[in-house]
Design a protein around this nucleic acid. Structure first.
Lengths: 138, 138
DNA sequence: TATAATTTTTAGCCTAGGCTAAAATTTTAG
DNA sequence: CTAAAATTTTAGCCTAGGCTAAAAATTATA
């Protein structure tokens, strides 16, 4: 290391990562809700919380925020539905998740590890890199 | 999507990602401090804040936590130093960052995009995947 | 159908890490 | 050497998202 990148440029990288963090929760929730609906016909709070590894109360609070932001809707004590906006976000996330996961597996990462890694990195992949992941063949 | 992975397994992925998030700030700070010391002989709060894209007050608060956790040390109004623990963490992060960055570039991602992507994903790469990134040749 | 079990919500607490504004200190210039 | 500028710290506010405990509602069972 003999020189540093321009400070503003570096700051923009960190700022973008912080922004991505703010969308991550919403993305994880809607993607999971879409999967639960697809497979189990409904998304219950208790399933969501269990699969995210958090307490019901925490999931309930986040869902209240997502409802306020127009991603999900539900009646009290009833299961959770995605709005059009939420479903669109879920579809984008699911597609991206699949690209990352399959890329890692083609690269030779074991499926279990690939699942964990994909979960962490999917929110931080630029469109350019995603396109390269997509067309990569072992 | 016709079936879902085991709930506990999925929960463990999300939990690990949340744990990684908790280390991210410390990792970003010590890595940057190490770079600043290497290139400019010292790491000043104002440079750290500027390069992270946050206000001085925010950086100051985080540095107080990192000092309490034994990663950095400093005298009031003076520049910041890494402890042995902090320097070791910085070295690990720097090595990992380099592997991720160079992997992305070899894969064909443009250097600028690679920098941003590396910043976001480096904290979420398992040892297994990192090893594969390391030996990948275009 | 009453009661027990389950599920969901609410209240309240905590930490991390953003922010602004202002105080304290150090550095620089006149 | 003193006044202005720059830097750092402190105080206090905010949001997100964890948590526990307890209340409320729904669902299941005896």
């Amino acid at each position: 290391m003999t020189k540093l990148v321009d400070a503003k440029t570096q700051a923009s990288w960190f700022s973008r990562v912080r922004e991505a963090h703010q969308s991550e929760t919403a993305e994880d929730y809607v993607e999971l809700i879409a999967d639960l609906i697809a497979v189990q016909q409904e998304a219950r709070l208790s399933d969501i919380a269990q699969r995210l590894g958090v307490r019901h109360a925490s999931a309930s609070k986040v869902l209240a925020r997502l409802a306020a932001e127009g991603y999900v809707e539900s009646l009290p004590y009833r299961s959770i539905f995605l709005t059009e906006k939420g479903a669109a976000l879920a579809a984008r996330c699911k597609a991206r998740h699949k690209i990352v996961l399959e890329f890692l597996i083609r690269l030779g990462v074991s499926p279990e590890t690939a699942e964990y890694d994909a979960e962490g990195i999917e929110h931080h992949i630029s469109a350019e890199t995603l396109a390269i992941f997509k067309r990569f063949r072992g």
